[in-house]
């Protein structure tokens, strides 16, 4: 098990490097470098450009030097000083902006993941065991529907309904009185009271596909000979179901975290924009629109790292559940 963990951690290193390179490429993609843009806009506003400060920035980011040097300098800042560069849109260090937002994104994604699992697991089992029953058809129908509605649309519709018929706003993660308040238990409770709306919205598509996966897996397992063996031993159907096929089908279910998590994080980004939640989404899109590239790229990088870590956790969970993987 320990070896397994070690190997997984080693596997992560190239992934993390690749992620940082992709993020850096995104920084580099817009034509021109940000300093030129900044100088131009400062000049346009009639501000003086401090040449020494400018030079300091140039040195810090390695501008004018080859691309790989710039990359290494950026990475060096991150690893040694936790410095992701500066956001020019906010005139702040990126690191001052990202963490609280990232934490809320994390909470939101995790809550959505739990929601997806808790809902999809029993429904998937039911659908498989009662294949072609009315309940199965209903689940399948809602599953398809959940897959087909883009979650921003769902968010819009819910907002419209809440606004139109209940005269309420469903946006945000906090009530106004807690918006700027420091963290207290009251604030946490308030967060959870608000959390369910985006969680349900973000979770629909994932729930729909996980129901289908659970159903298909379980149907597969139900056909396996070991089920017949267990039945031939005289086990009651329900005990048999949960001890063997459900338990075996659980493994691929758990391993879906690998791709469910990225889609949830994606969903969280876009739903947050619609519902204006204080997570990474709204800030990311603003950064992209303003070509505030260090901020944008840092977000993309950190979100990706978040999912990679999530996947690692699910791998470990899977190894703990499945002896075949643990011992491979």
């Amino acid at each position: 098990m320990f070896q397994f963990l070690l190997r997984r951690l080693l596997y992560m290193i190239p992934t993390l490097i690749a992620i940082s390179i992709v993020a850096f490429v995104i920084i580099q993609l817009p034509p021109g470098d940000f300093l030129t843009t900044m100088v131009a806009s400062m000049a346009a506003q009639g501000e003086d450009v401090d040449q020494t400060a400018l030079q300091a920035l140039k040195d810090q980011y390695g501008l004018g030097q080859p691309v790989h040097i710039q990359y290494l300098k950026w990475m060096q800042g991150i690893i040694l000083r936790g410095d992701f560069g500066d956001s020019f849109g906010w005139n702040k260090a990126v690191s001052d902006l990202v963490w609280s937002r990232l934490a809320l994104t994390f909470v939101l994604s995790l809550a959505s993941l739990l929601f997806v699992w808790v809902v999809a697991f029993p429904i998937g089992i039911y659908s498989a065991v009662k294949q072609y029953s009315v309940g199965d058809y209903v689940a399948t129908f809602f599953g398809f529907l959940g897959l087909a509605i883009p979650n921003f649309l769902l968010a819009l519709i819910l907002m419209y309904i809440a606004f139109r018929y209940f005269n309420q706003s469903v946006g945000g993660l906090f009530s106004p009185e807690y918006q700027e308040a420091p963290w207290t238990w009251g604030k946490v409770a308030d967060l959870f009271a608000h959390l369910w709306v985006p969680v349900v919205i973000i979770g629909t598509a994932g729930t729909a596909s996980l129901i289908r996966i659970m159903r298909a897996n379980l149907l597969d397992e139900l056909r396996k000979p070991y089920v017949v063996t267990a039945r031939a031993k005289g086990l009651p159907e329900w005990r048999l179901l949960f001890k063997y096929p459900v338990r075996v089908a659980l493994n691929p279910f758990v391993s879906t975290v690998g791709w469910v998590l990225p889609t949830l994080v994606s969903g969280a980004a876009i739903v947050s924009i619609v519902l204006s939640l204080p997570t990474t989404g709204p800030l990311l899109i603003r950064a992209l629109q303003q070509q505030d590239m260090y901020l944008a790229a840092s977000f993309i990088m950190l979100l990706s790292i978040l999912t990679v870590i999530g996947t690692l956790v699910s791998d470990l969970l899977l190894a703990w559940l499945d002896p075949r993987i643990r011992m491979e």
Partner: peptide, 24 residues
């Protein structure tokens, strides 16, 4: 397979946003 795994592990919408925003 590694490359595929890598691409799949990145949340697509932020990445798409990043790339799309870079289109002139």
């Amino acid at each position: 397979q590694r490359v595929i795994e890598f691409i799949r592990s990145i949340p697509t919408i932020p990445l798409w946003m990043g790339l799309a925003a870079a289109l002139p």
